[in-house]
Amino acid sequence: MKEAIVFEQVSKTFPKAPKPSVNETSLSIPQGSFVTILGASGSGKTTLLKMVNRIIEPTAGTISVFGKDIRSLPVTELRRSIGYVIQQVGLFPHLTIEQNIATVPDILGWERQKTAERIDYLMKLVHLPENYKKLYPRQLSGGQQQRVGIARAMAGDPAILLMDEPFGAIDAITRKKLQDDFKQIQQELGKTVLFVTHDVEEAMKLGDQMIVMNEGSIQQYDTPLAIMSNPSNSFVSSLIQADDLFQQLHLIRAEDRMIALTNETVTDGVPTIQGSESLKTALQSLLQHNAPYVVVENDKGERLGQITLEQLNLQNGR
């Protein structure tokens, strides 16, 4: 698979800081993957992210995007090709929603018609009603504002999106909806996403791959399931609470643990759950219906597999 972003021995030490924020880090992000970066504040996760679009310049090492050193082209040009979403959203308060979304197309000098079509497409994509176009940012709720933020970041059709705790300031209910919607958008469009968060659940839920950072170094870089079942050290283990069974069940997706449906599986009157739901939901369903297994479906209602009590026992059968 093609590599979208590659870090080679990258370090960043801020002036007057006693130790580096990011320390000799190498890693590569495959094209089309959703990679979450998890860490506490001060772990270097945001620094790592912001070096990709040169908001922060590394003190050593090279970063390349699609094989090209990011220093080889003007910084504004680089940034126009990479979407950027931040926690505080940063919408332009004096511009309407459509003007905000049109920022990058306007810089790139797109024709009016093309920009207008792009705005319509993006508003639909992020589930914003069309009549919001002429409103100003302050007339929208926090969640809606971040939807605009995502649409604005995607306006120039960048292959890569950098997101710095984009849902961190949004209430829990709205956040869940935004996570679900954004995950779907990412899968649909195949964008490469680098996503910083300090929320374990969010990192596990959204990421195909997950990076755990501490004190400027990558502690582990693997799938959420692999990190959960096989934490590389005690830091990772305690951060994700790997010894808490309920926490594990809550964080592991049903589709990651399910086994194939067998011929003798009777699927009438058996409880079903969505593949993206957690094993905790599967357990609940098993107990509620007193059933021997639950059927796992995708969002189109197609049967993907099943989960029995055995799959819920995380200590065996890896």
Partner: peptide, 15 residues
Amino acid sequence: IEPAIIEAASGLGMG
């Protein structure tokens, strides 16, 4: 002016 607004603007590639 909120610093986040400036950060967003430069992050989008404005000079």
